[in-house]
């Protein structure tokens, strides 16, 4: 396994680059490579500056921000899933299951309906996302232990609680606000703008870099509180740090694109299958795989039919059976006796 890791990582990076270029060219209005390179070169100040207007709009204003947002979201969801799984010692959790996604969308809805009280969609998404994950954790914790399935259940409870809050928001919202909420709740990357990309990049990339740097500590934390303590880390503080970083990355993405489930569950598992359980590999591998997966799903969503399929449908169709398989095949390990 060890000898294959580096070539495999390089291969995955190449696959991501290839998928990105394919996604850039494919679509309702197919571009060819020379057009695409021409347009990109013009924007980077390299070309002769004569660019066809249509190409410019499609490539630079529509496709590129959309693809970048998909890549960032995939990274954030997969990495935060890996981090949650490590610090709760539970291979079944991810941002969606823990209620982070519902909490973050509730925060974003609050920011739409009560802009005076909750300024800044991203900030209130982050705060409510953190509240959701902490609530799930403390609901499930019993005498210093957090049984895997109990944590999943409490995550569902917290998630439904926050979904109900979103319902209230919709009820209270005026027509314009309701439109805005519904629009944004549908999820997906259709309306990705460069502004979204910048905000997400500013939150997600530093978080992932920091989590990658702390990956070794995550290994130790995943041994359980007592062992982690006897190996010299402060389990509660370290877990709090990991939760804050993972939730920040996930909730900023949720506030930009809506709820996208299952990526955070599947990609860390795939990363572990390919690279082993060491988080120093799992975190970067999850980031690449998550980006690749969401990019492919998004490309499918917009090229499969003439109209666009919401991406959440595609991720759920693949993801739900995956969880089922996980429970059937590895249930005994996961239930923890």
């Amino acid at each position: 396994m060890k000898t294959f890791r580096i070539p495999l990582a390089v291969l995955l990076c190449c696959a991501l680059a290839a998928a990105f270029f394919h996604a850039l060219l494919a679509g309702e209005y197919a571009l060819d490579i020379s057009d695409a390179l021409h347009t990109l070169a013009a924007h980077l100040g390299l070309g002769d500056g004569t660019v066809q207007k249509t190409h410019d709009i499609i490539l630079w204003r529509i496709r590129l921000p959309r693809l970048l947002l998909a890549v960032l979201t995939g990274m954030a969801m997969a990495v935060s899933g890996a981090v949650y799984q490590g610090c709760f010692r539970n291979p079944l959790v991810e941002p969606y299951i823990l209620g982070v996604s519902a909490g973050a969308s509730c925060g974003a809805a609050l920011a739409i309906v009560f802009p005076a009280i909750f300024p800044g969609g991203q900030l209130s998404a982050f705060l409510m996302g953190t509240a959701a994950v902490l609530l799930s954790f403390f609901l499930a914790r019993n005498r210093g232990e957090t049984p895997p399935v109990t944590l999943v259940l409490s995550g569902i409870i917290v998630g439904s609680l926050f979904s109900a809050c979103i319902g209230i928001m919709k009820y209270l919202a005026s027509d314009v606000e309701l439109r805005e909420i519904t629009f944004w709740m549908m999820g997906g990357f259709y309306y990705a703008t460069w502004e979204d990309v910048f905000i997400c990049a500013c939150a997600v990339l530093p978080c992932i870099a920091l989590l990658f740097a702390l990956a070794w500590k995550l290994n130790i934390l995943s041994l359980g509180d007592e062992e982690a303590r006897s190996l010299g880390v402060h389990p509660d503080r370290l877990r709090a740090l990991f939760i804050i970083l993972a939730t920040l990355a996930a909730s900023v993405c949720v506030s930009a694109v809506g709820i996208i489930a299952w990526v955070g569950l599947m990609m860390p598992h795939a990363a572990r299958m390919l690279f082993g359980p060491d988080n120093r590999w799992v975190i970067p591998a999850s980031a690449i795989l998550g980006a690749l997966y969401l990019l492919c799903c998004d490309t499918l969503a917009r090229t499969l039919t003439g109209a666009e399929i919401p991406i959440a449908i595609i991720t759920s169709i693949v993801g739900a059976p995956y969880l089922l398989w996980l429970l059937r095949a590895k249930g005994r390990e996961l239930y923890g006796a």
Binding site: G86, P148, G232, P277, D278, E333, L334, G336
Partner: peptide
């Protein structure tokens, strides 16, 4: 009982973390 099957090499290396 560990949810993540670390390699023996990594498990021993964790002793170095302090």
């Amino acid at each position: 009982r560990q949810p993540f099957p670390f390699l023996v090499r990594d498990m021993v290396l964790m002793g170095r973390s302090p």
